[in-house]
Design a protein around this nucleic acid. Structure first.
Lengths: 208, 208
DNA sequence: TTGTCAACTGTCAGCGACTGTCACTAGCCT
DNA sequence: AGGCTAGTGACAGTCGCTGACAGTTGACAA
C-alpha cells in the first residue's frame, strides 16, 4: 500500500503538472517562469527541479502517459495483423483509453489546450518531435519483433513507422489548427488521412 | 560590388561558424560555451549574438544552406514529373551541388562531423526536426502549386511530403550511425530506402 | 580630404533556466 | 522514543540570452 510519504510526493507532482499546464496555456510557455509554477504550488524552485528535469519535462508530463499507452496498444494487437493495420487500429482504438488515463491527472480540456500550445510554440514543437522520434524507435522494434525481422538489417520496420508517424503528424497539425477539438474529429481525420497515403504516393494528382 | 564593411561582416560570420562547428564537434555542443566561440574569433559575446539568434543558430548555419538548396532543386524540377519522383530526383541530384556550396564556407569533412553531432545531441536533434518540419511545409506548398491543388483543402501534398521526409530521416539516421560517410553512400541509401517504401506498407513481411 | 552619419562593436548590468551544497524537517522503522 | 533517511528550502554560482549606452570605424557627400 501507498505510504504517506509517497502520497505526498505524488500529490506535489500532480499539483506541479496542473499548475504548469494551467500557466503555460494561459500565459504561454516562454512567459511562464519556473518560479511562478513553484510559487503556485508553494514549493521552492529547487523542489520543482527535483520532480522535473526541466521546464520542458513538466510540459510533457501528460503526453508521456499517452505515448506509453500507444506503445502498449500496439503491443496488445493480435500478431496476425499486418504491421500498418496494427498501428492503425492501435491509434484509432487507443483514444478512449487514453482519455480516461489523462482525466485522472488533469481535465481533458486542459490536455487539449496544452496540445495546441505545443504545436504553436517552436521550443515545445521541437521537443515534441524529438520525443516522437524516440517513440518511433520503440515501435519499430516492436514491429520487427512481431514480424520476426532484424531492425538493423531490414529497413522496413523503421520505414513503415516513419511513414505512419508522418501521417500522424499531419493529422495532429490539421486537428490542432482546425476548429473541432473533439476526439471524434481526430479519429475521423486519422482514418481519412491514412486512407489517403496510397493516392498521395502514386502518379500525379491532376488526373483525379 | 561588396563593400569593405560587408566583407568584414561576412568574414566575421564565417569565422564564427567555423569556430563554432570546430568546438562543437570536438568538445560537444553543451560543453561549448558561447564565450569560448567568441573568444576563438576574438570578438565579444555580445557580437556573437548580433550574428546569431542563439548558440543553436550557429550550429545550423551550414544546414540552412543545404536546405535552401534542396528547396531550390525541387523548384527546378520539370513540371510534368509526378510529385514523389520530383522529390526523389531533387534529393539524389542535389548532393554534388550542395557539396560545392558547403565547401565554400567550411570543409566538407567538418560539415559531416557536425551532421553526426546533431544526430547524437538531443537538443540539436530536436532543433533539426523542427527545422525539417518547417521545410516540409515549404515543399508541400511547392508540390501543391505544381499540381494545381489547394494545400489546405487537399491533404495529399502534406502527406506525400511527410512520407518522403520520414524516409529521408530514416536514411539520415542510418547513414550517420554507419561507417561509410561518403556522399555516394547516402545517395545509395536514399535510393534503396525510397524503393522500400512500397514493400514496407503492404501486407506483412514474413511472406517475402 | 574631411566631416557627418550610420553601422558595428564592447562593456556593463540583469533575467531566467538550471545545478551543487548544506543544513534541517518530517515521515519511517525498530 | 529515537535514530535514520528521504525530501525540502535557502543560498550561491554557471550559462544562455537581452537591453542600454557609449565608443569606434567604414561609407558617402561636400
Amino acid at each position: 500500500m501507498e505510504t504517506l510519504r509517497e502520497r505526498k510526493k505524488r500529490r506535489t507532482r500532480e499539483a506541479l503538472v496542473r499548475a504548469a499546464l494551467e500557466l503555460f496555456t494561459t500565459q504561454g510557455y516562454e512567459r511562464t517562469t519556473v518560479d511562478e509554477i513553484a510559487e503556485a504550488v508553494d514549493v521552492s524552485q529547487r523542489t520543482f527541479f527535483r520532480y522535473f528535469a526541466g521546464k520542458e519535462d513538466a510540459a510533457f508530463a501528460v503526453q508521456e502517459m499517452t505515448e506509453a499507452h500507444f506503445v502498449a496498444a500496439v503491443r496488445a494487437r493480435p500478431p496476425h495483423e499486418p504491421p500498418m493495420e496494427a498501428l492503425r487500429q492501435a491509434v484509432l482504438e487507443g483514444w478512449d483509453d487514453i482519455r480516461e488515463t489523462v482525466e485522472s491527472v488533469v481535465p481533458v480540456e486542459l490536455y487539449l489546450r496544452m496540445y495546441r500550445m505545443i504545436e504553436s510554440t517552436p521550443a515545445l514543437l521541437a521537443a515534441h518531435l524529438r520525443r516522437s522520434a524516440a517513440t518511433e524507435q520503440t515501435i519499430a522494434g516492436l514491429l520487427a519483433e512481431r514480424e520476426g525481422v532484424d531492425v538493423d538489417a531490414d529497413p522496413r520496420p523503421r520505414l513503415a513507422v516513419a511513414v505512419f508517424a508522418g501521417v500522424i503528424r499531419v493529422t495532429e497539425r490539421q486537428w490542432s489548427t482546425g476548429d473541432d477539438f473533439s476526439l471524434a474529429a481526430i479519429r475521423g481525420l486519422t482514418a481519412a488521412y491514412l486512407d489517403q497515403v496510397g493516392p498521395a504516393l502514386t502518379g500525379n494528382w491532376r488526373a483525379a
